[in-house]
Design a protein around this nucleic acid. Structure first.
Lengths: 333, 333
DNA sequence: CTGTTAGCGCCTTCAC
DNA sequence: GTGAAGGCGCTAACAG
């Protein structure tokens, strides 16, 4: 700590003011990002004093008076799914680019939510982005004492902003593609059906099947994971195999592909066509050329960050912001 | 905000005290986690008042007096690599389990570091965990005004604690395995050689090759990515193909495997054996049964969290905490 | 333009 | 066991 000789504690704005020979208020103004009235020479002296002392403002103390911490809570179940990788990096980058930082909160289980509420481990963040489906909008607003919670888990009410993919469009495209290729009998591999988003997704598939004259001959429940796809493959790809298998996650489709790889010589389907969901970047790897459904993650993240950058733009009751999904053809279909 | 009628602002400890009919000091003591002298009946009244108001302490204001925010900065280049997935979830979970929260800081580029330093976008966190190799120990200590920075990027000095895998042990094992199988000529695919950790890693390979009488016939530089593995394959697996190819990341090995899949019928090597590094959970997928080198992530994370839970245990000059790596045989070798 | 004053919400002496 | 008072670091409001 060469820049702070004789003190064992970090320099405060008072130290800077003293060294520059001005009042604390002037020092504060000189160091502010906003334009504030300070004479040129004093500003210079303050800036130099700050540099000499290695002064860094205590953003937490600052927040006490300004009522804004520049902190965004991102609430997730866990960071485990392959699709997370594609999303969170963009999200971090975008949020930081508007001058805010991210507190990552991993819920893990419902018990954890209650623990948070009980222990009051709640920061007064500017906004919360909720991917976890363990908490609904009112709960999250209470957790963070903030009305600005962007719900991304399907559990929204109309008091808080919402960004959501329109899964229907991509699903319709994918199923139409299958129909065009002569698919008559389909299998469907789903995730946790307790989730409202998953319910809606399944509804879109059924609807599209009906519209295209495809019969849904078999439904298997998985949990979005590769392993559950593995298991589902044994049930589905038996003697009475459907013409196409649709999965509500790419990971499950990967599991199926690995079990049935012999049915895809040169990655071209023979016995059945395979469709995933998420459009993971992993589907660009040669081993998993899975036709999938996805949306533009950049656009999605931009909408989210818009809400936290311009909180005033949202008015209760406003309809959700919708991001369209599309079909991404690859070798398995 | 039914619990807060007539006020548009969150309840403070003063509100609780007033409602309970006690002084702010008593309210503070009653709500404290530490045992503090308060009469039983007053404590009860305070607790009830807090519940009725839906009071949650402002942890940031609290930090002003207690000098501890329960905030840990995790500094990364980006969250992009597949190996990140296996690590960060555990890390988040462990840190939260000691009652602290994580603020994720993505550096992205060297320019960003300087931006951080210039703008003072630095919270007074309790500790910083540094995975990014864009910042060295003194820089990070300055960024966060904290001496407790755990360096995990190879850029440590002895003023701050260090946890690092002993990559030598796993590499020695893997190379010995190759030698036992008759490998005489090896290829090596590396990552960014500017990183000191990568330099050390390469050194371990060379050393092991020498010890086992294996000749290093070809080195190709990649960047840890799948794509760079793809590119490297074309250079390496030509006419003069080595008996074994070692990669300093599993993703690169995956790229090579995909290009040369014909050389691994039934995932068994014919022309050359293939070794990766990281022991990604993805190598448990059937399509990428890559023999790899890795360490116990749980143990690694436990050591890190130990340091932040018991900061007093570290003394400057203390040697790094070492986590051993081992060889994980799979089909490609 | 400048300095003084008064808080933000909380905790900790220190007397009682 | 209790309450009053002071201060953490900072900035907004107000006089000058």
């Amino acid at each position: 700590m060469t820049q702070n000789i004789g003190r064992d504690t970090a320099p405060t704005i008072a130290d800077v003011a003293k060294l520059a020979g001005v009042s604390r208020a002037v020092a504060s103004r000189a160091l502010s990002n906003e334009p504030r009235p300070v004479s040129a020479d004093k500003r210079e002296r303050v800036v130099e004093a700050a540099a000499r002392l290695g002064y860094k403002p205590n953003l937490l103390a600052q927040s006490l008076t300004t009522k804004t911490v520049n902190l965004i809570a991102v609430v997730v179940n866990h960071i485990h799914d392959l699709s997370d990788l594609d999303l969170f990096d963009r999200l971090l980058d975008q949020i930081q680019s508007i001058g805010k930082q991210v507190i990552m909160i991993r819920i893990g289980s419902v018990a954890r939510v209650e623990e948070f509420l009980r222990n009051g481990v709640a920061y007064h963040v500017d906004a919360a982005l909720v991917f976890s489906d363990f908490a609904d909008a009112p709960t999250v607003r209470r957790m963070f004492r903030s009305d600005l919670v962007v719900m991304l888990n399907g559990l929204h009410d109309d008091l808080s902003p919402v960004v959501m993919p329109d899964e229907g469009s991509g699903i319709a495209e994918a199923v139409a593609n299958a129909a065009k290729k002569g698919v008559k009998r389909a299998g469907l591999v789903t995730g946790r059906s307790s989730s409202p988003m998953e319910q809606a997704r399944i509804g879109f598939y059924r609807q599209a099947f009906t519209k295209n004259g495809i019969e849904l001959v078999h439904t298997v429940q998985g949990d979005y994971s590769y392993e559950s796809g593995h298991a589902a493959a044994k049930e589905l790809a038996g003697a009475d195999c459907p013409d196409a298998i649709f999965c509500t996650s790419d990971a499950m489709a990967m599991g199926i592909l690995d079990v049935c790889r012999a049915d895809f010589p040169g990655n071209r389907p023979t016995r059945f066509r395979l469709y995933g969901f998420d459009n993971l970047s992993l589907t660009d790897f040669d081993a998993y050329p899975i036709s999938s459904i996805g949306y533009d993650k950049s656009v999605y993240v931009e909408h989210i960050v818009d809400f936290i950058a311009n909180p005033g733009d949202f008015h209760p009751g406003q309809p959700p912001v919708i991001v369209p999904t599309t079909y991404f053809p690859r070798l398995t279909a």
